[in-house]
């Protein structure tokens, strides 16, 4: 059974967010400028990417039976 598009994206987004938060937790272990930079350049982008992926999955998701239209990411069938 194939996993729906939205669930695949949610999985990827959730993993990215969790990774970013783990990086954030690790940076809490140290009071040092490098910890801040790692938080800013690794933790934050991972979380941001995860959130973006999740939000993208919401807008790109087409419920079964819905007509392709505004916001659709799939191509309409070619005209005959």
């Amino acid at each position: 059974m194939t996993v729906p598009f939205i669930e695949r994206q949610i999985k990827r987004g959730g993993v990215l967010i969790a990774l970013g938060l783990v990086v954030q937790l690790l940076t809490f272990a140290s009071v040092h400028p490098l910890a801040f930079v790692v938080f800013l350049l690794a933790g934050c982008p991972l979380v941001a990417a995860g959130i973006a992926l999740y939000l993208y999955s919401l807008v790109a998701h087409e419920p079964p039976g819905s007509p392709p239209g505004f916001g659709s990411v799939t191509r309409p069938p070619p005209a005959r």
Partner: peptide, 27 residues
């Protein structure tokens, strides 16, 4: 909640915490 609201709050809190730490003599 889990993939948007809470992560945004967590990152915001983490940023505040790091800014707070950056003001410390130890830092």
């Amino acid at each position: 909640v889990a993939l948007f609201i809470l992560p945004v709050l967590a990152v915001w809190g983490g940023f505040s915490e790091h800014m707070e730490r950056a003001q410390s003599t130890r830092f």
